[in-house]
């Protein structure tokens, strides 16, 4: 039966693809058909058809391999997963409709035809979902790494004063990394005051505050002073509303004010020079 269907498809590929395309275009959700040129659509559609046929005619040994190739290929099209799943479904539906209209389906072979169709499309669906989730997983991991790299380096600004700007959401894992970078930086640059700038942190909840307090405590242990700067009004509001106690450390609204205080702490000040 596999062969029969495959031969049928190969013979009628143009008709099937035309009909499949029309079906896909009916669903206006995906922008594929709207933004691509006709030529690109045509070749892609043809390729898709060939892929479908080759996955159907593969022998059992090579089937898994073919399946993998197929999904990898599909992912490369950059279609949305809903679109791909619909494409697969529509394709099998079109074949069914075509073959029925043509009259090559009858009661005796109907059942085995459906079976072949299911055995063919279901693994394809699974394999495509698999391939997509793998790609997503990889993306998520890469982004995680990117986020870690992005996080937190200590910048020595003046002798004895360093700044660490924090950007983005802080979770437990990142908090640990920030703490390590902070402390190692303090020791390396021999900073006596560090300014932790949270201007770029969108939300400060109890958890984030807890991590910041811990970091400040650890900084104190290695022998420096930690100041929290860049506290926006809404952050000040949430901190007080949540009942978080930050009275133990110096906080300022802006980095600039913090810097002035840090200089004062190390017995220095910025003075204007009159150039005449």
């Amino acid at each position: 039966m596999n062969r029969e269907i495959a031969i049928y498809i190969q013979k009628n590929i143009d008709k099937i693809l035309e009909r499949w395309k029309a079906k896909m275009e009916d669903d206006q959700d995906d922008r594929f058909f709207q933004i691509m040129s006709d030529q690109v659509i045509d070749t892609t559609v043809r390729e898709f058809g060939e892929l479908m046929v080759s996955s159907l005619t593969a022998s059992e040994e090579t089937y898994d391999e073919k399946l993998k190739d197929f999904s990898v290929q599909i992912v490369r099209y950059g279609w949305s997963i809903t679109f791909v799943l619909r494409a697969l479904n529509n394709f099998s539906e079109v074949i069914y409709e075509e073959m029925e209209e043509e009259g090559s389906l009858n009661e005796s072979n109907y059942k085995s035809f459906r079976e072949v169709l299911t055995n063919w499309i279901t693994p394809l669906n699974q394999s495509v979902v698999d391939a997509y989730s793998k790609v997503w997983e990889k993306t998520v991991n890469l982004q995680k790494i990117a986020l870690q790299e992005l996080s937190a380096s200590l910048i020595p600004v003046f002798d004895k004063i360093s700044v660490m700007p924090l950007v983005g959401t802080i979770d437990t894992e990142r908090a640990k990394l920030i703490m390590e970078n902070l402390l190692q930086g303090v020791v390396k640059h021999r900073a006596e005051v560090v300014l932790l700038d949270i201007t770029g942190v969108p939300v400060v909840d109890t958890m984030v505050a807890h991590h910041i307090i811990q970091a400040a405590d650890a900084v104190r242990l290695v022998g420096a002073k930690c100041m929290l700067v860049g506290i926006r009004p809404e952050i000040a509001q949430t901190i007080v509303t949540l009942g978080i106690n930050l009275t133990d450390f110096t906080t300022t609204s802006t980095l600039q004010r913090g810097m002035e205080q840090a200089l004062a702490l190390t017995n220095r000040a910025i003075v204007e020079v009159n150039v005449k």
Binding site: L183, A218, L221, V222, G223
Partner: peptide, 30 residues
């Protein structure tokens, strides 16, 4: 107390030991 290493400071804090009233410095000179 001087010269507490970053790793030591982190473990102390995680253990829940804050050594609150302790005066610290980066090194012997400081």
């Amino acid at each position: 107390i001087t010269g507490i290493q970053p790793a030591v400071a982190i473990t102390l804090i995680e253990l829940g030991i804050r050594l609150e009233n302790v005066v610290t410095a980066l090194d012997l000179e400081n």
